Simulated assay, not measured.
Amino acid sequence: MNNVLCIFIINGHYLKECLCAMHPSPTESIEELSLQYEDDRNAMIAVADKDNFITYDEFYDELDNRLGIEQSMNMIFFGPPSSFLRLDADSILHILTQTKKYMIPIGRALLAWDIVTDGKTAAFLQGREYLAFGSLLDVVPEEDLYYVNFGDPSVLNHFSSHFIKLQPRKYGILASAYRRYYGDSWYHNSSFINELGYLLCGFPPSDLAKISPTIFKEISFETLSKTGKCNIKQAKALYSIAIHRDAYGEPYKWSSHEIGRLSALFTCIPKIDISSIQLEAVTAISPEVLTAMNKEKLEYFTKQQILRMNPKTRRIYILRMQLKNTYNMNDVARQSGNSRTINQNIVLPFPLIIVTLTYFDF
């Protein structure tokens, strides 16, 4: 027991001084002592600076607390830009590869492009970066696409073998970037043309017309099959080369081999030349080609040619002819008054096919 000096003061008046006894504090238990020891020991352990870690809580601290971590993709693409900027380029490429492109806002796509390029031009990118962006390249500035490095085999292989839904002007920019590396003499070498693939549809018809018939005949089937993505002017320019006597000649001379190689270019055949195609060659017309052909040209196939088509192609032909002759709802007269039901039989241009159409006229 320890004695201490005590001073008594009441209402501001001094009374007296005396010695007071102070009882010691009760003895701490072993459990409390062990906890204090653990706290002291943990405090001595070196801990790295907190700024070196990026936790999920810190990543989403600026977002709505009602959103769950399972909605992280929405947080990344619709959250604040400061959170998106914390991602590195490899993480962004992985996210873009696993995400549907149409769900990504344009602002985030441009921000991702700036992060991946790191303030440099597109000349430093490889095929994997373009594969991750895909159709998002349609929102990338044209001046950036002009510096695409087609000297890199991975870049050239990506754009030639993958069809990307881009505006025709963007494909023209890519064709200009290709011309920067290989010059204007690409149409003199069939090897260069075969390497173009889908990029062939990026060149204007005036450039495609420079391909000689001899070189055109050396173009591979894989490259010609990709010309279906070209516009009508580009396809007609290539078709005019194909019918040259030094290439494949007039359509009436074609066999199934020529029609199979020309593939999508067959849609450019004039109406008057359709009936002159040999019956043996008709078997090579694919359903995709007949689907893309102008429906006005379908009437010029003869009955013998239709019967010689392969079953799938003939079915497409019949369906398209049916759709061409079906009832046009624009002809329905709309009159005021009570509604009445009209039944009309439509006889399609094929035997034993009758469709009854019921519509309401108001």
Results as ranks from 00 to 15, higher is better:
residue 238 L to V: 03
residue 330 N to R: 14
residue 329 M to A: 07
residue 278 Q to L: 10
residue 135 S to C: 08
residue 171 Y to Q: 00
residue 178 Y to I: 07
residue 235 A to E: 14
residue 324 K to G: 11
residue 172 G to C: 02
residue 311 P to H: 10
residue 278 Q to S: 14
residue 44 M to E: 14
residue 92 I to P: 07
residue 183 G to A: 11
residue 202 G to Q: 04
residue 181 Y to T: 13
residue 300 Y to V: 06
residue 209 A to D: 05
residue 110 L to S: 02
residue 18 C to Q: 12
residue 327 Y to P: 05
residue 218 E to D: 14
residue 241 I to Q: 01
residue 8 F to R: 15
residue 325 N to K: 12
residue 187 Y to K: 04
residue 236 K to G: 04
residue 12 G to Q: 12
residue 51 D to I: 12
residue 119 G to K: 08
residue 316 I to S: 04
residue 61 D to G: 00
residue 40 D to T: 10
residue 238 L to T: 01
residue 202 G to A: 03
residue 24 P to W: 01
residue 181 Y to V: 15
residue 162 H to W: 06
residue 302 T to Y: 02
residue 70 E to I: 08
residue 46 A to N: 08
residue 210 K to M: 09
residue 39 D to S: 14
residue 352 L to G: 02
residue 9 I to D: 03
residue 138 D to G: 04
residue 268 C to R: 08
residue 362 F to N: 12
residue 173 I to W: 00
residue 107 G to N: 04
residue 354 I to T: 15
residue 81 P to E: 10
residue 151 G to D: 12
residue 269 I to Q: 03
residue 204 P to T: 10
residue 339 S to D: 11
residue 87 L to H: 06
residue 17 E to L: 09
residue 186 W to Q: 04
residue 3 N to A: 12
residue 245 R to T: 13
residue 360 F to A: 09
residue 87 L to E: 04
residue 335 Q to I: 14
residue 192 F to A: 14
residue 28 E to F: 07
residue 36 Q to W: 08
residue 23 H to C: 05
residue 266 F to K: 00
residue 257 H to Q: 11
residue 310 N to C: 05
residue 241 I to P: 02
residue 74 N to S: 13
residue 172 G to N: 11
residue 36 Q to M: 12
residue 196 L to W: 07
residue 330 N to E: 15
residue 346 I to T: 12
residue 227 T to K: 02
residue 114 D to F: 06
residue 170 K to F: 03
residue 112 A to W: 04
residue 31 E to H: 08
residue 137 L to E: 07
residue 250 E to P: 06
residue 188 H to W: 04
residue 221 F to D: 07
residue 102 Y to F: 09
residue 4 V to K: 13
residue 1 M to S: 14
residue 133 F to H: 06
residue 320 R to W: 09
residue 16 K to P: 01
residue 2 N to L: 11
residue 26 P to N: 07
residue 135 S to N: 12
residue 165 K to P: 01
residue 30 I to G: 03
residue 140 V to C: 11
residue 299 E to F: 09
residue 95 I to P: 08
residue 78 F to P: 01
residue 269 I to S: 00
residue 11 N to T: 04
residue 271 K to C: 09
residue 164 I to T: 01
residue 125 L to R: 00
residue 17 E to T: 15
residue 46 A to W: 11
residue 234 Q to A: 04
residue 208 L to A: 02
residue 289 V to Q: 08
residue 193 I to A: 01
residue 35 L to K: 14
residue 297 K to S: 14
residue 142 E to Q: 10
residue 348 L to I: 08
residue 294 N to D: 15
residue 304 Q to R: 08
residue 138 D to Y: 00
residue 49 D to E: 11
residue 92 I to V: 15
residue 295 K to P: 00
residue 359 Y to F: 15
residue 205 P to H: 09
residue 127 G to Y: 02
residue 204 P to C: 05
residue 318 I to S: 07
residue 218 E to H: 09
residue 105 P to E: 00
residue 77 F to T: 03
residue 190 S to Q: 05
